[in-house]
Design a binder for these strands. Sequence first.
DNA 1: TAAGATTGACAAATCAATCTTT
DNA 2: AAAGATTGATTTGTCAATCTTA
Lengths: 177, 177
Amino acid sequence: VARPPVEELEAGAAFYSEIAPDLDVSHFGAMWHTFTVGHMVATDLDRVARRHGVSIADLHVLGTLRIERKERLRATDLALTLHVSNAALSARIAKLESKGLLIRAPSPADRRAFELQLTPAGAALAEAAIGDISRNAAFIRYFRRLTVADRAALGRIMGELHNLLDRDFVPAKRKDA
Amino acid sequence: VARPPVEELEAGAAFYSEIAPDLDVSHFGAMWHTFTVGHMVATDLDRVARRHGVSIADLHVLGTLRIERKERLRATDLALTLHVSNAALSARIAKLESKGLLIRAPSPADRRAFELQLTPAGAALAEAAIGDISRNAAFIRYFRRLTVADRAALGRIMGELHNLLDRDFVPAKRKDA
DNA sequence: TAAGATTGACAAATCAATCTTT
DNA sequence: AAAGATTGATTTGTCAATCTTA
């Protein structure tokens, strides 16, 4: 606990490398830091979102719907984009609708589906919360301390991994799984 | 949904930059990719861990305890290292103990505390699952596709952020909340 | 007073099953 | 059949309160 995470992790990698020489531990650092930093980012963003009365999961919905698109998003589209199950999204949408932050209207094209749209209150909340995040999230504070080259590299590399992983990610049902 | 995540994100950043010119969107990419990739890594690791009969949270406990230390870990130490609340860890420990994977013994130094130690079955499970991860986790498969320079950069930069964020991360128990 | 640990109430996620429409 | 959406059962997390010991 006294040791910083990077030292802790290196000690662990050294230990496992010793008891299991066949084990490739070269990726441990990147994977573990990504796992943990991801968790800390989620916790921190949730803290900021709750100042505006919603969870980070709720804000993810609102922030995605805020972006203008050619076609309205349906619940299923959103579930795929946000990497959650339809069941989880149903509950979130019901909650946000009851709060007056979004409207769920039957799709004119498909009577099974619903199209989602923000109310003015939902749009305002999304913008305020996203502004709050960009000013106050811990990740962004520390991110700004990195060198220009490191910031660019991180964005590019994580983007590559995001694109690669996205294709075979299967939390809420996939096409080619 | 058809668009890959990086394009989707860039379109969102462009949209928000337009409706709110004061907003600094330069960090959106890195933060969002980190958030989402972290979530996907967690989901993927959980999938592998469950082949061995435990969750990734359980395996985090076992894998940490497997590392030899000068002093035994107490439940509270582990909660800090793993970034979860004492309450969550109590439940996890009870479950793992009932499965015969670890032993919870009263601390000789402090009668409030318990010291944790793996059973041989727990140690074997941790090693098998960690080996499975290093051979089969999706993150590692894609990580190996990156250039040598990018792999090194990612490990180094995420490690820096991990160290920075860790210092004021307080999910289980906040000082200033 | 504070720290280690536990419990109960609550929130939110997945999975499996179901209903309607395509 | 298969897809969009919803519900119920189960799991697991945080938070608040409590008990014992330091």
